[in-house]
Design a protein around this nucleic acid. Sequence first.
DNA 1: ACCTGAACACCGTTCAAGT
DNA 2: ACCTGAACACCGTTCAAGT
Lengths: 223, 223
Amino acid sequence: MEKAKRTTVRRSSALTREGIITAAIEILDTAGETGLTFQSLSKKLKTGPGALYWHISDKSDLLAAACDAVIAPKLEIQSVGATPQKIVRDIAGALFDTIDRHPWVGAALIRLPGKMPMVRVLECLGQQVGALNVPENDQWILVSTLLMYILGVAGQNAANAQLAQELALERSHFLNEVSTAWSKLPMTGFAFTRSMAARLQSHDDREDFLSGVDIILRGAKFA
Amino acid sequence: MEKAKRTTVRRSSALTREGIITAAIEILDTAGETGLTFQSLSKKLKTGPGALYWHISDKSDLLAAACDAVIAPKLEIQSVGATPQKIVRDIAGALFDTIDRHPWVGAALIRLPGKMPMVRVLECLGQQVGALNVPENDQWILVSTLLMYILGVAGQNAANAQLAQELALERSHFLNEVSTAWSKLPMTGFAFTRSMAARLQSHDDREDFLSGVDIILRGAKFA
DNA sequence: ACCTGAACACCGTTCAAGT
DNA sequence: ACCTGAACACCGTTCAAGT
């Protein structure tokens, strides 16, 4: 934040780690996870695949760095003066929005347990839960419950986007497909899922997600 | 359950979908997700890779079928007479145990939104929540919150197993690595994560998971 | 109808060779 | 120190050819 970046002066001959990651993010956003290959990335950067390995160690490293670069800035926005509950809700909302815009972030986040992008989320949630009236012994449980819930939604979002792309469908059309598939389930044994088929089409993803956050916050033991 | 299977009479010449799935599960359990390839699978079944495509449509289909075959029986156990809360807890516990034993199930479950293995879990949870005193409008939220939480834990479990295997480490040793990495984080900005490093080693995965389920159940609005 | 296995397109990664 | 790009091992999937 305090470092002045002179992005305009980037020489075309310099292949930097940062430039590679930026290019990777652009590919991921436009072509999805399957679109990012060392071939496509090196082509975009007008170099050979081997050159990339001088700056990044492998594809997992690349994904982690790309994921972190997208997520980190979104977690910095601190709404001062609000209740911790409200801030947690805002953090979750910000995460939902970025994962909604960059579905691959959800998949990357899940596959990197304990690594930087996830630690950042953990820390962000933890600081707010610390300000909550929760006994210290229960803080870990509450934070990890929130984290696992967020990761679950993130993973689903990524999987939905992935499948929708494979079928060359809009995301909403894909959900319609799921909904009609559910309504064709046998009556016996799938009563609940059938009854939820309609709701699947009309619901608001973001609102439902935040309602889940509210449930978890409400269920925490307060001192 | 009521169908008598004569598994012993299986002729060696018959290549059945069921047999393929059984073999795939064996490979997944012993060699992990990366160990299952059409090469390894066809070799185990003493046939060519192309033969498999007569019975399954692609790898995603194979994973879905394997996942469903492992999960479905575990969800049938109904503890009658218990409170819905207790039953939900038991379902979650059963899921945790199978995902713990077969980490690849977690990854498969996440990648198949709206498909059979996941629908089965959804239905199982939904039926119990229906017996709870929750307003009908809130049932979907509660069930999907539970589901997303479970999927998040499942995904983490799969990712942990995957990374541990890549590093040729025991799962507990892998968690130790994460713990020490956390304790080496800079003081400023990572106070919470650092303070949780120690807890990561001593905690009980299963117990923490069920505590999360309790939080969610407690936070649901009861009529 | 079902199986065989070579062949195809594509992937992540390596490495000798250049500058 | 950093880049090039051919080569390697491996993957999912296809398909002409067999039975």
